[in-house]
Amino acid sequence: MAAGAAPRPRVTADQLRKRRSRSLKEEVIRLSLLGSALVSVFVSVGIVSVLLGEALPFFGEVSVSEFVTGTTWTPLLEPRHFGVLPLVGGTLLVAAIAALLAVPVGSLAALYLSEYASPRVRRRLKPTLEILAGVPTVVYGTFALAVVTPTLQAILPDVRVFNALSAGIVVGIMILPMVASLSDDALRAVPQSLRNAGYGVGATKREISLGIVYPAAFSGVISSYLLAISRAIGETMIVAMAAGSTPRLTLNPLESIQTMTGYIVQVSLGDTPAGSIEFQSIFAVGLGLFLMTLAMNLLSQKIMARFRETYS
């Protein structure tokens, strides 16, 4: 034993016991952090209960079957009709146009980024594309009105001032970076060995990209499509500004239509008293919107989880 080492009293159980003062402080901190984490629970419960709370009285007046199957939406005019299909149809028309633009262009961009671009080019192009995702939707709306619609009118004289096509194209541009970026992530998760197998039998890059990589990443890519389309369905400002406010069940993209979100904005711009059927109707429409986007998001997450399981 080293000389001069100060002998120390042995540790006692008392010294190892939990101290009330410190445990209390640590516990207060833990509980407040837990409280912050639980805010997400309150928000989720809040959204569902607010939508249900206002939509249930609405369904007391309008039957669910009339709401879901009705083809006339005239909530502000007598005789009132609350058939939501024209709004759903408008929403889906815009989302379909957006998807027709964003899915092929976004997928090709993702294939370029993951299979062709050098790391240097990738590092520059991807953030530039992501700027598109950060542009506020009200700016996209202004862009639709100021640039896209006049351009369309110059090409097709039948295009109305407010129309589904212009809104759909701009929504497509908005969700394009989402498709490209998420699909790129999925494509790059495909192991290099699969590509090498393709090169080994003398395949070209295109044959490998389309024949091997894209199919191998398909579930991940699909998940990105779903997420982007869900975003298109919930998009509000572009459609409120550019698609019009004419609830109409039509497949003609040159006409003015109204989407679910567009209707909600239209009503909230007016001075609708709380408790009136118009006020409640936006919550019924909101509930429908919530269920549609939630279903797509959940499906997307589920497919993505399976994709991650395959390659990890």
Binding site: A13, Q15, L16, K18
Partner: peptide
């Protein structure tokens, strides 16, 4: 057992234990 004390006993503070 640390100094004969069961370190997993419910009233033992692991923080105090690690200081020693």
């Amino acid at each position: 057992l640390f100094e004969g004390i069961d370190i997993h006993a419910s009233d033992i503070d692991p923080v105090e234990l690690r200081r020693r």
